[in-house]
């Protein structure tokens, strides 16, 4: 079963890669696709800060008269198909891993990342289903998943092992599962955040490399709203997982609810940075681009906690050790 999980993992990465290439192809060839049109929509909702930007507005539907046969749309649909395939394989990887270990598949850093990316993938597909016009973000969502999964397989892989007794607690399950959910959503939240910055730069007339990507991504206000909604959803989850369930478990298990262990320090830092993002977004005098940079920084601190802390520091949380 463990062997099967490893093989599935390899196929999963390949499928995300395929989806990514197809999304990229759509991006390159789908000039007149619906995405191009969505991107060119006038920013009419942008009346004054804080004005409502109805994300639920029906955008031009994907099926609008496609001039002749649009290669881009076709490629995009295939890309989404591969994306779903990759998700199914990804799910299989996680489930077989759990069966092999005979427990929840999040006992070490490899499994944790595997599950976080699965959540990220699910959230992305959920967003895509509700808002097909965001399809062009697929390239960047798939890119993020491929990079994280690749890094996970290459540097964090650990063979199946049992949990140490301190992890045998239902608070542990609650603690880790909420953090996984939150991390997966933050992960997908970082994608529109980055693309919003690109698009905002593009709209200001910047045409150098990262900004040139802005030509075909959805409208800035749309990306910004999506960024906020994902973060506003993930932040309370993260608060619960890292700052309530974690300390409750730590109190029962180690005797103190908070001990400034390196993992705790970085969870605290991530929390503060994401709180700063929400705070900055609510502060009228802070520009949305600045606020969004803070969200990106927040994700960087999450990555630091996931990979950096496990690799460079040691602490009580060493169950999360790389390589077991």
């Amino acid at each position: 079963m463990a062997e099967l999980s490893n093989q599935l993992m390899a196929v999963t990465v390949l499928s995300y890669l395929a989806a990514m290439v197809l999304y990229a192809a759509e991006y390159a060839f789908g000039n007149k696709s619906h995405i191009g049109r969505a991107a060119q929509r006038p920013a009419r909702q942008l009346v004054g800060a804080g004005a409502p930007v109805p994300l639920d507005d029906p955008l031009p539907a994907a099926e609008e008269p496609a001039p002749k046969r649009d290669r881009g749309v076709l490629l995009g649909r295939i890309a989404v198909g591969f994306n779903w395939l990759a998700f199914a394989l990804h799910l299989g990887t996680v489930v077989t891993r759990g069966i092999a270990a005979d427990r929840m598949p999040w006992g070490n850093m490899y499994e944790f990342t595997l599950t976080v990316t699965l959540v990220g993938s699910a959230v992305w597909l959920g967003v895509l289903t509700r808002k097909p016009e965001l399809r062009h973000l697929g390239l960047f969502a798939a890119l993020a998943l491929v990079m994280l999964l690749g890094a996970d397989g290459l540097i964090a892989y650990a063979p199946v092992g049992p949990l140490v007794p301190a992890l045998n607690s239902y608070w542990f399950i609650i603690h880790v599962s909420t953090i996984i959910l939150a991390s997966g959503i933050f992960l997908i939240g970082a994608v529109p955040a980055a693309m919003f910055l690109v698009r905002a730069g593009y709209d200001e007339g910047k045409r150098r490399f990262p900004y040139s990507l802005g030509a075909k991504v959805p409208e800035a206000a749309l990306l910004e709203r999506l960024t906020f909604r994902l973060h506003a959803f993930a932040f309370p989850l993260f608060t619960f997982g890292a700052l309530i369930a974690g300390p409750i478990w730590a109190e029962a298990s180690w005797g103190r609810y908070w001990g400034w262990d390196p993992k705790e320090v970085w969870a605290f830092i991530s929390w503060i940075v994401y709180a700063s993002y929400l705070h900055a977004r609510a502060t009228p005098s802070v520009k949305r681009t600045v606020a969004t940079w803070i969200a990106i920084l927040g994700f960087a601190t999450m990555l630091m906690n996931l990979f950096g802390v496990n690799l460079f520091f040691s602490g009580l949380h060493s169950y999360a050790n790389a390589g077991g």
Binding site: P262, V273, V309
Partner: peptide, 17 residues
């Protein structure tokens, strides 16, 4: 408040290093 929040995050880093 934003600046202070930021400072707090930065000041927490040495404790993990």
């Amino acid at each position: 408040a934003l600046v202070l929040l930021f400072l707090l995050a930065v000041a927490a880093i040495p404790g993990s290093v």
